[in-house]
Design a protein around this nucleic acid. Structure first.
Length: 499
RNA sequence: GGCCCCAUCGUCCAGUGGUUAGGACACCGCCCUUUCACGGCGGCGACACGAGUUCGAAUCUCGUUGGGGUCACCA
């Protein structure tokens, strides 16, 4: 039950990290941490044409941000290096040669044109393409001759008859494929074993064997590759690991999640103000549940609770609303000081606060207090800018509905003036002092407190929406508050409002 | 189309032979309230269908339908 586990997350550096990848990485991480095993990061860069170091850096940075720290991998090393798949080239070559020597692989001289024709015919017949096996039983002498002539070839795996199956340690259980439907697949590209490149189904097995991987957790879309990999394991005399195929994450239209559906790349979520805690929490819930009605988890709690047995097998639709909600819950759990630190880059980026504002400087406690007051009005870090901006910038215009529904109401101007007087004369410019002053004024004017407060709020912030009015005023200070009211009064005059 | 996987509210999850089928998000009311949020209360809303097994099926079996994945000398 608690046998040592070795898992890996093996992205190919050909693009951005997608939420689906993130969930796969997370589950691998959770399994390893929960069972005291090793979580390794391996970069599958054998496709030299599509792999970029920029993508690799992006992936590493993203994983870093999420807090999914790997035990072995790039920039860290480990006992089973190399962790960049391209670094294992000679080992792949040796394994391929061995397969060839032992008859598990054979050279295929078919040209691209010939193969295209085969594929074309299969499509025409409405059947799945399976390599014909034309080069499978070539005469030994002929093979020698063509090899000696330097004719280009690819290496194909000789798929044996029968069926291939494996048992997943989840409710999915056994999955089986008929070998006949697999076809002899290519493990090494042309022109030859000395010059070409090893291919995925082969490299992944060799690498996992070399790294002593015990559990392969990956997307559902890899199920059809699995029998081929199991075959390679057997041919190489190795015991296959446990395979666990995770349900897909779909878009709202139930198609595989893609850019069309909105944000999918991790950096986009980050830009939008998601917390790593929020994303991790939400993604953990997409395909797994503890079995009770709980859905708020820290990474540490997930490590504690996660188990393969509780994985579910139904594809899940990514729900942005729910993701945002979970993020909001995680945000609530953070102390104001921390929320302020995390929000700062967004605030500065939006110009809501002075560019030079830094933690632990003179202006810092005030920002923390503002953030504290905003409380759980926001769910994403980027949403703080709306509430924070008024404390650093006097309104230059007034929100449309605020003008219509507040400033435009008859008597608004008088109430605002009386409010200004109350602010000017208040004995102490604190929340409590202001509140009692306004309650008295409301009683005197025989109007609801709201009637008094609304115009003031608009004058002070430019909008009807914001934190408590008395907190707002206190945080602004008497001088700035009075100045803003003056400005608003003249705005009302020039627009003939609130008479 | 072949092969493979899957099937409970709109969405995400509970539920493993006997429940008024539960929770969360979203949505809609009401309450609280200086606005917006938060919070509280309530509502809407699902076992895809058909056979079987059983005293009894959301739960087990088979079929149908539906959805998804995959069919490269990419990963």
């Amino acid at each position: 039950m608690t046998s040592p586990v070795r898992v890996r997350f093996a992205p190919s550096p050909t693009g951005h990290l997608h939420v689906g990848h993130v969930r796969t990485a997370l589950y691998n991480f959770l399994l390893a941490r929960g069972r005291g095993g090793a979580y390794v990061l391996r970069i599958e860069d054998t496709d030299t044409e599509r792999s970029t170091t920029e993508s690799r850096r992006g992936i590493i940075e993203a994983l870093d941000w999420l807090g999914l720290e790997w035990d072995e991998g790039p920039e860290k090393g480990g006992p089973y290096a190399p962790y960049l798949q391209s670094g294992r080239y000679e080992e792949f070559r040796a394994a391929a040669r061995r397969l060839w020597d032992e008859g598990h692989a054979y050279p295929c001289f078919c040209t691209t044109e010939e193969l295209d024709a085969e594929r074309e015919e299969a499509r025409h017949e409405g059947e799945a393409y399976v390599y014909s096996g034309r080069c499978r039983d070539l005469d030994r002498d002929e093979v020698e001759r063509r090899l000696a002539d330097g004719e280009p070839y690819a290496l194909r795996f000789r798929v044996p008859p029968g069926r291939t199956s494996w048992v997943e340690p989840t409710s999915r259980g056994m999955v089986a494929f008929e070998n006949a439907g697999l076809g002899d697949f290519v493990i090494w590209r042309r022109p030859s074993i000395d010059g070409g490149h090893p291919l995925y189904n082969f490299t992944v097995a060799v690498d996992d064997i070399a790294m002593r991987i015990t559990h392969v957790l990956r997307g559902d879309d890899h199920i059809s590759n699995t029998p081929r990999q199991v075959l390679i394991y057997h041919a190489l005399g190795a015991e296959p690991p446990s395979f666990v195929h995770l349900p897909m994450i779909l878009g709202p239209d139930r198609q595989k999640l893609s850019k069309r559906h909105g944000a999918t790349a991790l950096d986009e979520f980050r830009r939008q103000g998601y917390l790593p805690e929020g994303l991790v929490n939400y993604l953990a819930l997409l395909g797994w549940s503890e079995g009770e009605d709980r859905e708020l988890y820290s990474l540490a709690e997930l490590i504690e609770s996660f188990s393969l047995e509780r994985l579910n097998k139904t594809a899940a639709v990514f729900d942005y609303d729910k993701c945002r909600h979970i993020n909001g819950e995680q945000l609530k759990a953070l102390p104001a000081e921390e929320r302020a630190r995390r929000a700062l880059p967004y605030l500065r980026g939006a110009g809501a606060v002075p560019a030079e504002l830094e933690p632990d400087t003179d202006g810092w406690p005030r920002l923390v207090e503002i953030i504290e007051q905003i409380a759980d009005r926001v769910k994403l870090l980027s949403e703080y800018t709306f509430y924070v901006r008024p404390f650093y910038h006097a309104p230059t215009e007034y929100e449309e509905k605020a003008v219509k529904k507040v400033l435009g109401k008859s008597g608004a101007r008088e109430r605002l003036e009386r409010g200004r007087a109350a602010l000017a004369e208040a004995d102490g410019f604190t929340h409590d002092a202001l509140e009692s002053a306004f309650r008295e004024l409301a009683a005197e004017l025989e109007v609801g407190l709201g009637k008094l407060i609304q115009p003031l709020r608009v004058a002070l912030t430019g909008d009807r929406v914001g934190i408590g009015l008395f907190e707002t005023a206190e945080l602004l200070g008497r001088e700035a508050a009075l100045e803003r009211i003056e400005h608003c009064l003249s705005f009302m005059d020039s627009h003939d409002l609130g008479a």
